Amino acid sequence: MNSDLQIRHDWTIEEIEKIYNQPLLELVYRAATVHRHYHPANQVQVCTLLSIKTGGCPEDCAYCGQAARYNTGITVKPLMSAEQVVGIARRAKEAGSSRFCMAAAWREVRDNRDFDNVLEMVRGVNELGLEVCCTLGMLSQSQADRLQLAGLHAYNHNLDTSENHYDEIISTRTFDDRLTTLNRVRKAGISVCSGGIIGLGETHADRVNMLHTLATLSKHPESVPVNALARVRGTPLEELPKVDTWEMVRMIATARIIMPASMVRLSAGRSEMSTEEQSWCFMAGANSIFTSESDELLVTPNPRLDDDRKMFELLGLIPMSTDKHYA
């Protein structure tokens, strides 16, 4: 069997570094070969991401426009009602989404009425036949168990960056805190969605190290989002340069090779990429994108759904069916 087609959890940093640093065209070819072995080449999962509670977060993530301590001009909005959320999810399914992701700008989940409302949202979206995903911050084990019982399919909790670079970006929770939440999600029987952001001032070694952490978990995350920094005015990282598309392609391709069965999600940063640039990401192994009813992804720009439909038609891509379950 081709060694690239094996699912491994014993990757070394040196092995991943060698893959990451190989000539770009060879890297993309290898990744495309792996992708076609594990996934339909022409199918892309369309996911709708909704901010169910916006802004006012007590964390200090240096990239985030929702952090209360930064003056970003974002309007703080309270938790939406379950009825509102389920209505948006229904329209998302009609528009072609098969996964519905709900994000709340919280540091951690608290056992209160808001969490009860989120559980009601999960139940309602699940009844629509959509994969339902949440990203709510840190979880206790009992909270993860309650989400699973409500029908939660997946939980997103990104590492963001490498353990070495982490303290340069966030001080209000630790890298180990993130791994603890991932372990609790896994123990609850919920699918894990975890990736990171490039363009945070990290080195190539940091990117390799972040991928190494994910690829050496006892079970790979079923979903690996790859985000380019969306520079938000008022945050400490607002002056950093735009992430080069080829850096995104290299990151996606490496993730595809070392975590072959995972969904690799082309996430934040698409608004600054042309159709041609996005097509390279799909060729490199990305098989999911995020959309929303507006032209924003949470609080940063995102392509409009009509533009994505045109891109799919041009590239011969089709949305994954809502009557099948993908990780």
Rank of each mutant, 00 (worst) to 15 (best):
I16V: 15
R107P: 00
A32V: 01
K18P: 02
K18S: 15
S271N: 07
T172H: 04
Q148L: 00
T12K: 12
S271C: 15
C134Y: 00
T254A: 11
D323I: 08
D177Q: 11
C133P: 06
P260K: 02
A284R: 01
Q45L: 15
L305R: 11
L5K: 14
D323T: 14
V85I: 15
A327T: 12
F290C: 07
N126Y: 14
W280R: 07
D160Q: 13
S191M: 13
D114F: 00
T322C: 08
E59Y: 02
S223A: 09
H35P: 06
E163C: 11
L159H: 06
N209G: 04
S3N: 14
A105G: 02
Y29G: 00
L152D: 09
A31F: 01
Y166T: 02
R8E: 11
I19V: 15
I169C: 04
Y63N: 03
L240V: 05
A89K: 06
F100K: 03
L317Y: 13
G285M: 02
S98M: 10
A284F: 04
S97E: 06
Q66E: 14
C134F: 08
M320G: 12
K93Y: 07
R231D: 05
P301G: 03
M138S: 11
A89S: 10
C133S: 05
I170E: 01
A150E: 05
K53F: 07
Y38C: 02
D60H: 11
V44D: 00
R178L: 04
R256D: 06
V86P: 10
Y326D: 09
D206N: 06
Y155A: 03
R107F: 05
K77I: 08
E131G: 02
T54Q: 12
S171W: 00
S288W: 01
A261W: 06
H212R: 09
A268D: 03
G137M: 14
D114V: 00
L79A: 03
A67K: 09
A268W: 01
I74A: 09
I88N: 06
P23E: 14
D114R: 13
D111L: 10
R256W: 08
E296L: 14
V34R: 02
